[in-house]
């Protein structure tokens, strides 16, 4: 499945998880500086158990975002997360670039 189609199914999956009664949060890239792997608007949907679909970085920060998202599901409220994607991290996911992303995390209520 290509990246574009994956993006298109993130919200559908979030709604489906919600219907199943799961705790769900959405993480959205709201701004980027420099070269960043995923464009503004890219999304990740996360469940309380830590399952997720989509991407906000191409792999470098998903783990940290999932961790924050689970806290948002438990505690409510929203969070703005800022990550510097270092050259080294970017290199590990196959992107020879650096950049910064701002990710907004909110619960689906």
């Amino acid at each position: 499945m290509d990246a574009l189609k994956d993006d298109e199914t993130v919200l559908e999956q979030a709604a489906a998880w919600k219907t199943e009664g799961k705790g769900v949060a959405l993480a959205t890239v709201v701004s980027t500086w420099g070269s960043s792997p995923r464009p503004v608007g890219s999304q990740l949907a996360i469940t309380g158990e830590g399952n997720f679909i989509g991407s906000v970085s191409g792999g470098c920060i998903e783990g940290a975002v999932v961790h924050e998202a689970r806290q948002v599901i438990d505690e409510g409220g929203t969070r703005m997360l800022t990550y510097g994607v270092t050259d080294e991290m970017a290199w590990e996911v196959g992107l020879a670039c650096g950049g910064t992303v701002e990710v907004f995390v909110e619960p689906v209520e």
Partner: peptide, 11 residues
């Protein structure tokens, strides 16, 4: 995001 807002967006 409210659930019903998400549903309307998907629709």
């Amino acid at each position: 995001m409210k659930s019903d807002l998400l549903d309307r967006l998907l629709a």
